[in-house]
Simulated scan of single mutants.
Amino acid sequence: MIFHQTPLVGAYLIELEKHADDRGFFARFYCENEFKSKNLVSHFVQINNSLSVRKGTLRGFHYQIPPAAEVKIVRCIRGALYDVIVDIRPSSETFGKWFGIELNSDNRLMMYVPRGFAHGFITLKDETETFYLVSDFYSPKNERGIRFDDPWIKAEWPLQPIEMSERDKNLPYFEPMGGDLADLHQF
Rank of each mutant, 00 (worst) to 15 (best):
G56Y: 12
T57N: 14
T57V: 15
R59G: 05
R59P: 02
R59L: 13
R59F: 08
G60A: 15
F61C: 14
F61N: 08
H62V: 09
H62M: 10
Y63I: 09
Y63P: 00
I65M: 04
I65Y: 03
P67T: 13
P67M: 13
A69N: 08
E70I: 09
E70K: 11
V71N: 06
K72N: 02
I73K: 00
I73Q: 01
V74Y: 00
R75E: 03
R75W: 02
R75G: 06
C76T: 08
I77N: 00
R78N: 04
R78M: 03
G79I: 07
G79F: 01
L81I: 11
L81M: 13
Y82D: 00
D83M: 06
D83K: 03
D83I: 09
V84E: 00
I85A: 01
I85Q: 00
I85L: 04
I85C: 04
I88E: 04
R89V: 13
R89A: 13
P90C: 13
P90V: 13
P90Y: 14
S91C: 15
S91W: 15
S91V: 15
S91H: 15
S92R: 10
S92F: 14
E93I: 13
E93Q: 14
T94V: 12
G96E: 07
K97D: 12
K97I: 07
W98K: 08
G100V: 06
G100T: 03
I101Q: 04
I101W: 02
E102K: 11
E102C: 10
E102R: 11
E102D: 13
L103P: 01
N104G: 08
D106P: 01
D106Q: 09
D106K: 08
R108E: 14
L109I: 05
L109A: 05
M110E: 03
M111Q: 06
M111Y: 04
Y112W: 11
Y112H: 06
V113L: 10
V113P: 00
V113N: 01
V113H: 03
